[in-house]
Write a protein that binds this DNA or RNA. Structure first.
Lengths: 247, 247
DNA sequence: CGAGGGTTTGAAGTGCATCAAATAGTGTGG
DNA sequence: CCACACTATTTGATGCACTTCAAACCCTCG
């Protein structure tokens, strides 16, 4: 694949995101020069919390885990971001310091852009400011929900909630769900241990009649699942989604 | 106090916030017409999650609890906001629907402004967009920390962290802290039960030698307290604060 | 002084974590 | 196609942190 083919590819990928819909043509020109596309193997640390941030990232494929880590190595997963999601943008408003660490949870294709490029656009394009404002506000709302979930939902309910969010991302008729990544990753995404996940999934099955075949889940009844799950939540299924799937 | 005195007072209070520093003179003119100042007794519900939002609020005095509530009445406190803080602004980017419920945790003096006024400024004043972007980004960072704390810190550590945040808000020499509101409110702010708070505070005292006299805490040694507390956190004391005190 | 909140204490239960080990699943080279 | 190695997942046993429910205590204020 030649240079121009790569850059066209970058541009196409970025333009699929709402965030970049309003970008100027001069922005796209500099993207051609300074935008990187790279393949990253699983388990690579992309950056660490509190380090100086220099680039913004967009995921073309794969999953990236955002987390925070204490001195003695305990980690809290903040989010798992996938296809067509952006990360690393929060540090733009935190004195260019990362607000979390990032690690590839699978082999990934990533696009990255230097901050200077984003900042130029931020200062020259009013619409882009509104786009990024909207993106960060959605992220904040998502975090509000996350705090609620981790406070009020039991482990089986958090898993049910995760499964339900994957349903309304697709057709509501198809009640067969493929878990998007490893169970132990889902566990960390939901703030629990892998062992707890395993047991809680079994409990969820007993309570709601879902069928579990490896990474494939079949929902017997949406009503049963959602009434069990959403009892511990301020929202009812189908919850309004945030235009970011599989999270 | 006459009308003009009240409106001048509103303007002064708002201008103390970074958020409103860049507002235009036409904004301030409409504030004179449409800004409300009101006294609210303790325990009043200001709005409920998912309701249509119409106003943005600023606190002149008192504390307001932001929370989410399930159908069966369980609540998760998202934040407690006080002096010179703004709340209700997130719904501007959530189709004018509140992203949490709000209740006065004490008698309060509140200022409120209609959304229309904020939106006008948002569309006409580029600097105001940047101000609100900065405010929401800080809020998002704060929430990221909150998720980390609730995942990685024990109850005594969360209390220690709360106390330490009140230290660096003041002089670092004065190691006498006055708890800003009721202990049971602090407990809900930290995501634990009042009983747990009471016991955990005692444990914190045993571990770090702090003295507890009602709502007054005396720190024996900052080092002892911070090394106990920050072991469960990705940051070290003094943690960079977010220009919002007593939270 | 007495009423009513806020706070503490006690006793018992629950949910999740932890540690250890077994099992299932996946990809490899023979 | 099988045996092996390696990882992911499950299962078991135990412990701890926090919750829950109940009651006592304390403080403030009419």
């Amino acid at each position: 694949m030649g240079k121009s083919a790569v850059t066209i590819d970058i541009q196409n990928t970025l333009q699929a995101l709402d965030l970049f819909k309003s970008c100027s043509s001069s922005f796209w020109n500099t993207v051609k020069q300074y935008g990187y596309s790279s393949r990253i193997e699983k388990g690579r640390v992309l950056f660490l919390n509190d380090e100086t941030a220099e680039r913004i990232y967009v995921i073309k494929s794969g999953w990236v885990r955002l987390y925070r880590e204490t001195l003695d190595g305990a980690q809290a997963t903040i989010d798992l971001v996938g296809n067509s999601s952006c990360f690393g943008e929060t540090s733009l408003f935190n004195d260019d310091r990362h607000t979390y660490s990032a690690e590839s949870a699978e082999d990934c294709e990533l696009i990255s852009l230097p901050f200077s490029l984003i900042k130029n656009e931020l200062f020259s394009n009013q619409n882009f400011v509104l786009s990024i404002l909207s993106a960060i506000a959605k992220q904040s709302l998502q975090q509000t929900r996350e705090i609620e979930h981790r406070t009020l939902q039991t482990a089986p309910q958090r898993i049910g909630c995760f499964i339900l969010r994957m349903v309304d991302a697709e057709q509501k008729n198809d009640l067969t769900i493929h878990l998007p990544y490893d169970k132990s990753l889902i566990a960390s995404r939901l703030g629990m241990q892998p062992e707890t996940f395993s047991r809680a999934l079994k409990k969820l099955k007993d309570e709601t009649g879902i069928a579990i075949k490896g990474a494939v889940i079949e929902i017997e009844s949406l009503d049963t699942l959602s009434s069990f799950t959403c009892a511990g939540c301020s929202l009812e299924f189908p919850c309004p989604d945030l235009k970011r799937k599989n999270r």
